[in-house]
Design a protein around this nucleic acid. Structure first.
Length: 959
RNA sequence: GCCCUCGUAGCCCAACUGGCAGAGGCAGCCGGCUUAAACCCGGCACAGUGCGGGUUCGAGCCCCGCCGAGGGCACCA
């Protein structure tokens, strides 16, 4: 049977259509102007119909794809194709996030330059994905490693470097606080409109020399170099951002220990955007889970800053604390500062009167005690600190502070449960209202005062719940009797009036550590002069390409070697590092920055490049950005704008998605984009997982050779070569010997079958196990469809031109109506089920009516585009169906002659009636009450009430 | 410890605003086609929704408490 829809036949026709699509530019998305038109050479002419769909940027791995990887790509392709048939101008393209660690590590093993590895991997991945028949615009692809892409990544970096955050400026959207060009800050300082920061070495701009001025300004930049404690990972040979370190103090990639080291590194002032990053989550259509993860990470806390005077200070005269519970101020019986707190640089020489022996840890003076404790705390790793979290350690500092509400002198301790990096690095301790403070108070014998009335039967310990304030009054103010919220606002007002404190918001988010000591990343477009101050290179010198170096592997160390220091590979090329430039002062020798950017940099803005992939004059044309991403660019875009649909795994919930939002907001502030958010609708697809089988020794055996047997009692055993093996569920991976690749699927079934199977496995957001044996069901569906239209022996069309029966017509229109709803909601699995129903119905007819099979082919086209194109052509159409209208149901065929009405008594089904759909409530009630089955169930009981939901249901409630 | 999501047939999954527990697929069984097998075609069977309460005329769906799975956060004041 030469025309049977076999895998080989499918493969031929699929590649045939892929070639035709390429030749015709079928998937060219038209810009409203510029070089990119649709396949016929036309620009976009229908504003309001642009739809920008996007996948999370793939990393071109050397391991190749397995069947789990394309799930999201198929889903976006289906959506894109469906929208195209709905008349939208769909932009869908795919680029490659090609900088990063794996290529570098592979390079270390093989000695091959990462660029060669990366480019070879991209070629392989392109081939595998092309075979899938994705409707991407091939003109809009690129890799982050391309020199003309790197150029714009560096350009954006310089925009950020050349900006500062003016917390008082008004934005175009009406909010307060925005990035502004750094020159405007310089002008403001120079003109005296803005006072110099308090830590500046002089009062006025004129008194500062050039270097001092630059230091003042550099400290305000959104991208800045600072000496600060950072996450140093010797095993990876680089420093890492907080987001890349797990909660147990290890690197997310590689799982190596991470140490705190004070190093000079680049940071990005993402904290300036903390409030906007949190607040604008309300403007976008994201899964609640991801939004809450971001909110969590940003960690906004409302509270107050309160100043405690130090009674026996030598240098510092006060301690500022942050608290979310200012209402409990009267219960503050001691204070705690972090071991790194500057207050501890000079502590009293002797213990004050009243010092308890348990507070001193046996030391003769506060100086000794604090020095010993600081040493101890500094030596602890994050893991150790974590492990000791329950046991509270600490030592008295010798300081006594004055509680501003009641003038009581309270001891100041240092303890490592207070973190320098959060709030002010100091707390007021309220053991009556905080469990950690209570544990510390117990360990050190400190008094407990309750300021919130505990509930009856209170068992002791800290009372953290709500209640009425007690024990909280002085001569001027009383909080007693107030609820927690009122007490908070009352005491804040009192503190503010006295200058002892102020309402305040604190964030958990820290500035983003942005430099890495690796080779395979974007170099910083920065040089240093003889003062060791950074200078941004002018646009004309971009891009700064990676130099050749003798050895591009990062210098790594023993993973536990905490005292090692990072060594950037770029520093190994002296000729590159020292460069003579004329930056306005005549030719001078400068030193280049030898760090590279983290691989998040390229993915922070790639969506903009899809819009305008070859622009060399500007980042992105403002017209194109507004057209594809601007606020209200289509009916669902909303006021924030952004990519219409963004599909990817949930693993980037905090990292990539937070960084990209931050960059986008900077670009917004600086006027480069009109959208407030980069991604309007986010969808997390589930993962395709797989079974793996291990023998008695724990060795994995090839999963595709395992035989499953079910015993009489229903228990299942798995055997490989006769030997019993254990089944595990999890990832697909080479070492687990359970990998199935798309190439395997293309060979055995063809791309369309593979696509149908992946889409029919279940809802897109649910993870599910791969089952190769089940794929045949999808192939049978396509085979049946093929046979319904084409003779397998002759290849002749076998459809009839006769009018279909009323039953068939109604089913066709019902299917159209249903699949439209399902596809719009991205429920492709249920849409496929409805197509199978229609197809199975057509199979039961002696001949297939054209009027039924044509809509079916069109409805299938987004999911299985190749077979749909082929059938469409065989049905006599010269034009591709890619841009053909999706069928529209005729309402007159959606009505039915009769519907089944369910008769219930007391909620239990007792009978059924066939009724006309328009039947009236009263008629239906009468029919139900006369129904023999209902009467039998009532068994003589009276009727209390009858609930009628015409025409589907009547429920009789007996008395 | 806190928070979120999910538990429906042997398996993957449907079930609208609370209204007949079943759309589709896999596997299974029976029959047809075939010299035979595979493919294919036709048919059949299979759960009362993790457990225990509650609300309701009516609960897979809403509420409360458990159990199990997955995920996030975790000395953040």
């Amino acid at each position: 049977m030469p025309f049977r829809y076999t895998s080989a036949f499918a493969g031929d026709l699929e590649q045939h259509w892929q070639d035709i699509w390429d030749e015709r530019g079928t998937y060219f998305a038209a810009n409203p102007s510029g070089p990119l038109t649709d396949g016929s050479g036309a620009h976009a002419t229908t504003p309001g119909r642009s739809f920008f769909v996007m996948d999370m940027f793939p990393y071109p791995s050397g391991a190749g794809l397995h069947v789990g990887h394309p799930l999201g790509y198929i889903a976006t392709d289906v959506v894109g194709r469906f929208r195209r048939m709905q008349g939208d101008n769909v932009l869908h393209a795919l680029g490659y996030d090609a900088f990063g660690l794996p290529a570098e590590q592979y390079a270390v093993q093989t000695g091959q330059h990462p660029r060669i590895t990366t480019e070879a991997n991209i070629v392989t991945m392109r081939r595998q994905l092309r075979r899938l028949g994705l409707g991407h615009d091939p003109r809009r692809t690129f890799a982050t490693t391309d020199s003309d892409y790197v150029r714009w990544t560096q350009w954006i970096f310089l925009q950020i470097f050349n900006s500062w955050y003016d917390a008082d400026a008004t934005r175009p959207d009406g909010g307060t606080g925005r990035a502004r060009p750094i020159d405007e800050l310089v002008d403001a300082y120079a003109s005296g409109r803005r006072a110099l920061p308090e830590d500046a070495p002089a009062r006025t701009w004129d008194e500062l020399d050039d270097v001092a001025r630059r230091r003042v300004v550099d400290a305000q930049r959104l991208a800045y170099v600072s000496d600060a404690p950072v996450n140093w990972c010797p095993g990876l040979g680089t420093v890492l951002a907080n987001e890349e370190v797990t909660s147990d103090g290890r690197s997310e990639r590689g799982n190596y220990p991470v140490y705190q080291r004070t190093l000079r590194q680049w940071k990005m002032r993402i904290t300036a955007y903390a409030d906007r990053l949190a607040a604008d989550l309300d403007l976008i259509d994201w899964p609640e889970k991801v939004r809450s993860m971001q909110r969590n990470w940003i960690g906004r806390s409302e509270g107050a800053r309160v100043v405690f005077d130090v009674a026996n200070a030598t240098e510092l005269e006060s301690i500022e604390v942050f608290t979310t519970r200012p209402d409990t101020l009267f219960g503050a019986t001691f204070m705690v500062v972090a071991p790194e707190h500057p207050l501890l640089d000079a502590v009293p020489a002797a213990w004050p009167d009243g010092t308890r022996s348990t507070w001193t840890d046996g030391h003769a003076s506060p100086v000794e005690a604090v020095a010993a404790y600081r040493r101890e705390a500094g030596a602890k790793t994050a893991v150790e600190r974590q492990a000791d979290a329950k046991a509270k350690t600490g030592v008295f500092t010798g300081f006594l502070a004055r509680n501003p509400v009641n003038d009581q002198l309270i001891p100041v301790f240092t303890a490592d449960y207070v973190l320098m990096g959060y709030g002010t690095g100091a707390i007021m301790a309220v053991p009556g209202g905080d469990e950690r403070d209570f544990a510390f108070a117990e360990a050190f014998g400190l008094p407990v005062v309750y300021t919130v009335a505990p509930p009856e039967g209170f068992a002791g310990g800290a009372h953290t719940g709500d209640g009425t304030t007690i024990n909280s009054s002085n001569d001027e103010i009383s909080l007693d009797g107030l609820d927690v919220d009122t007490a908070k606002s009352t005491v804040i007002a009192w503190l503010e009036a006295r200058g002892a404190g102020t309402g305040s918001i604190t964030y958990r988010l820290r500035d983003w550590l942005f430099s890495r000591q690796r080779y395979w990343g974007e170099p910083f477009p920065i040089v240093y002069d003889e003062n060791d101050l950074p200078i941004g290179l002018p646009d004309a010198l971009l891009p700064v390409d990676l130099p050749d170096v003798p050895d591009y592997s990062p210098r790594t160390f023993a993973p536990e070697d905490a005292n090692s220091s990072p060594e950037p590979p770029l520093g190994r090329n002296e000729e590159w590092v020292h460069v003579t430039l004329d930056l306005g002062d005549g030719p001078k020798v400068y030193r280049r920055d030898t760090n590279t950017m983290p691989n998040w940099a390229g993915s922070c803005w790639y969506y903009l490049r899809y819009l305008d992939p070859s622009d060399s004059a500007q980042l992105v044309s403002p017209e194109l950005e507004a057209f594809w991403m601007g606020p209200d660019h289509n009916p669902t875009a909303g006021a924030a704008g952004g990519v219409d649909l963004y599909v990817g795994g949930v693993e980037h919930a905090v990292l990539h998605l937070l960084y990209a939002r931050f960059w986008h907001k900077v670009l917004y502030d600086l006027g480069h984009v009109t959208s407030v958010e980069p991604f309007h609708t986010l969808f997390n697809q589930g993962y395709i997982q797989a079974y793996a089988y291990a023998d008695a020794r724990g060795q994995y055996v090839p999963a595709d050779e395992v035989v499953e047997t079910t015993a009489g009692d229903g228990s299942t055993t798995y055997r490989w070569n006769g030997e019993e093996v254990q089944r595990e569920y999890g990832k697909m991976g080479k070492s687990l010997k359970n990998v199935v690749t798309p190439d395997d699927m293309y060979d055995a079934y063809g791309a369309d079958t593979f696509r149908v199977y992946e889409m029919s496995m279940g809802p897109l957001d649910v993870s599910r196990p791969w089952d190769t044996r089940a794929v045949v069901g999808s192939q049978r569906f396509l085979q049946r469809l093929w046979r319904n239209a084409v003779d397998e022996v002759t290849g002749a069309l076998v459809v009839s031109e006769d009018e279909p029966s009323l039953e068939t017509t109604r089913l066709v229109h019902r299917t159209i109506a249903d699949t439209t709803v399902e596809m719009e909601a991205m429920r492709v699995n249920t849409a496929i089920a409805k197509l199978i129903v229609l197809n199975n119905h057509l199979t039961s007819l002696s001949t297939t009516p054209r009027a039924a099979v044509e809509p079916l082919v069109l409805m299938l086209a987004p999911i299985a585009p190749h077979i749909a194109e082929e059938l469409w052509a065989r049905l006599g159409h010269a034009e591709s169906l890619v841009h053909h209208a999706y069928p529209v149901a005729d309402p007159q065929h959606l009505v039915e002659d009769t519907v089944t009405c369910v008769l219930q008594v007391q909620g239990k089904v007792r009978g059924r009636l066939e009724v006309v759909p328009g039947i009236g409530e009263d008629d239906l009630r009468a029919m139900a009450l006369a129904d023999p089955a209902v009467l039998r169930a009532l068994d003589g009981r009276g009727v209390r009430t009858v609930i009628v939901r015409a025409p589907r249901l009547v429920n009789v409630v007996p008395a």
